[in-house]
Amino acid sequence: MKTKVFVFLFLLIVLAGFHTVNDSLFEVPKGWPKPQHDFLKKPLLKETVELGRALFYDQILSRNNSVSCASCHSQYTAFTHVDHALSHGIDDRIGKRNSPALMNLAWQKSFMWDGAVNHIEVQALAPISNPLEMDENISSVVKKLNATVQYQKLFYKAFGDSAITGERTLKAISQFMLTLVSSNSKYDSVMRKETHFNAQENRGYNLFKKHCSSCHTEPLFTNDRFENNGLPVDTSLMDKGRYAITQNPKDSLLFKVPTLRNIEFSYPYMHDGRFKKLSDVLKHYSNGITHSPTLSKELLGPIVMTSEERVDIIAFLLTLTDKTFLFDKRFSYPKTFFSDPAKD
């Protein structure tokens, strides 16, 4: 009888009770679908969310400590880039796309305009590494965090020891982003029967349900799919959207259907920020649709809208503004963290 390698591996799980599972960090609003994110497998912890919030607002994530996630995703504009069609990154380099508003990410299957990212936990790798955005790499971020006493403390609180790893850093950023739920607009109050639409908003709502909600489906105002909504290709960018990821011709010019919540503040619009105003968007849908082989079937026939009807739809879209969300202190710049002298 030969003797074999005989090794026992022990997995020691210590439940040290160092963290707080806090339900109020994330709640599914009444009547909303089940989130895509698996909160049972990956529950939110208060301390991890706090760490993630600090990281989200910290320029330490960029090569020369000049750009934070919030530089392109600012709370007051529903976490998008104020006023920039194409986002501006490190050294004023101009990106290739418009930064999307960040909210209700827990319901999303994939991320980015083309779905390049398959899980929220790995999303932050993209901007950190993109030479036009933060131009850094995650190993170097981990080194910088390790050299910061205050982060050692935060990692300790969040993970039970002060080991700072790429996994933990990314996980913490994603936990903060998962808490960004916007569900308290006038539209939501109307749905909860706490208030009413005025006559114009009501007309707009009915028109919206007729023309728009197959893609911008309630209550998230997106069907979380990729569609071609008939935008003519910008020949200088030549962005074919989803095609870049799948290389399937059927995906050419398909982009993720964005939510329309807080749309009042997330201008400019579309993946390249080509429209400054909602009235431009409505003009596009009523007489700007460009036909191409992948155009979504809902837009094959023209959407006939009078100019009054377009104004009504816009009045409805403005009811999707959620001031509670835009000014929620839990999501804002963590002043106390950044004023701690141990931070530098």
């Binding site: 929220i120 790995v122 790798l125 995650i138 981990v142 996994e167 933990r168 990314l170 996980k171």
Partner: peptide, 12 residues
């Protein structure tokens, strides 16, 4: 598709 992982699978 399982999100971020550690050890040998850490993105660093």
């Amino acid at each position: 598709v399982s999100g971020v992982l550690g050890g040998d699978l850490d993105p660093t």
